[in-house]
Design a protein around this nucleic acid. Sequence first.
DNA 1: CGTGCGATTATCT
DNA 2: GATAATCGCACGC
Length: 240
Amino acid sequence: MPRRISRSFLAREVLQFAPELLGCTIAHTTSAGTVVIRITEVEAYAGVGDPGSHAFRGRPTARTRSLFGPPGTLYVYFTYGMHYCANVVGGRRGSGGAALLRAGEVIEGIDLAKERRASGARRPPADRDLARGPARLVVSLGLGRENDGISILDPDSPVVLRYPATPIPPDAIRSGPRVGVAGPGGDASAYPWRFWIDGDPTVSPYRPAARRRRGAGSPTGPGLGQAVPGRSGTDDSRHT
DNA sequence: CGTGCGATTATCT
DNA sequence: GATAATCGCACGC
């Protein structure tokens, strides 16, 4: 079994370690059992000064206090009045840098994950959908508000991050605009800080920042420029 | 102190 | 595709 992620791994700039989280595993153990997820998609948030970051303002609120903690802190936040999302805090302490865990593949504890994801009488989702999306990943993993602020570097922590069993080839890593985040001037592609494993079925579908509908407004906004050089910006997981 | 809108998802048309 | 569900926070008055 690969060794645990080191503090120095997370102490680097977020843009440096975020793509390297791909292929890593995150495990959460509770009395109900252990679920292990292989990370297939992340987003980098640079913290103070990054308009998309909860740390943009530079000062912690009750919600974002853990985001300003030391590398290795887990930042679990509540959004849309109903969902939780999880970040691994990194960079310099107090920088507010973090990587959002957007999607992964459940590789252990799949029954427990299905149990957690099955809502009501509904059938549990397909295996590949168990952790396909940041809020779904958190549910499968069994994380909640009680895990906000814990250190994943602590040997006694219920949450453990490990290096990939088999490293991801660099040319299999793709990048593109962050989901649901608009950059300056509404251009999300100003921050192509979403990273995923090319062709992996558990990568979440890309959707441009959802503009809330207001009265009879302006016509359809400008399409997102597809043109991101290199192997960026292509997303075969996109819905039509 | 009110209002608008998110680092979303399930469900309906 | 569109929309409801519904909490925390920034911002405007």
